[in-house]
Amino acid sequence: MFSLSIKEMTFFKLKYLLIGFILFFVAALVFIISGLANGLANDNASSMKELEVTNFYLAEDSENRLDRSQFTIEQAEKAKDASAFGVQMQTTEKGKDGKKIDSTFMTFENEKLLPTIIEGKMPQNANEVIVDKTMQEHGVKLGSVLYLPSVEKKVKVSAFTEHFTYSHTPVIVIQPALWEKVGFTYNALVSTSGTPAQSIDGDWSTKEDVVAQIPGYSAEQSSLNMMLSFLIIIAVFVLGAFFYIMTIQKVQQFGILKAIGAKSKSLIRATMLQVFILSITSITLAALFAYILPLFMPEGMPFVFEPTVILSYGAALFAVSLIGALISTISIVKADPIQAMGRVE
């Protein structure tokens, strides 16, 4: 039956190519959107994902939102097995020309949490900062002077880090000394493992819960996830319909094959084999396509090819097409050998 399946596919090339293409495009679309969802998630909150922190201790009633949670310097000093962390979304101006850049200031009391430097040197004093390399798109270089208008303070860029953004803005890492001097408050106590009891009022939240409350994060992710789930549902119907039409068209042929002695079982196996070959090739090609796509995408397009995510969506699509095909095999079981006599149209 294997050779029969292959011969049919090579004979009706166009028909099977068409179905393969549809499968390919649906799968490619699913992969691209999931890659975008991933990319946007990274782009939005890469700083939080990179951060080796498991839990955030936030002030009461802050509903996992960092901007609603505040701790004074005195409160932060009472932290037990946790360190103070501050985050402020503020505009920065570049040097004297005063070009405004949306950015986020962060500070870490625990130096181990500082991001990895890819260029430049560790800040030597409170007036030097580490910035995310996306700042380079605004012409910022090592040694550039940034002006923080909200606190009327100038700082010098001493190092670049990467993948360190917050709500799609580059992060500027400031030392706690400057943070306290300009009068910012801390927003959370962070723990690198577990939820040690604290004496000040507040509650522990997980990193996931805090990330979900970063401005724009949930809205982006939920709309992309909705698109993905709709795509999968559409795939169920499109593929189901295609396989249904494909088998319906062949009822006469199934009748002939049964009349000359083929059993339903072997016809179903032959059909499933075709669907198997079609799905595996199309989905694999779509995954390859999604893999090489970033090479052709404009710089800065947030797209991340995450093999495990692609694999799971690929498996879901594969299951969807097999199930669709399996449902349409009912028409194979129903095909009557008497059809070969040409009485039934």
């Binding site: 004979f11 000359i260 059993k263 079982k265 040409g342």
Partner: peptide, 30 residues
Amino acid sequence: PKNKLADVRLKNIGYIFQASNLVPFLMVKD
């Protein structure tokens, strides 16, 4: 049952239909 009938058709009967009813995508020998 249906399966056993299919076997009878396969092994014991050669049926020539009014319309030849060959399998559309195969060549003569196949």
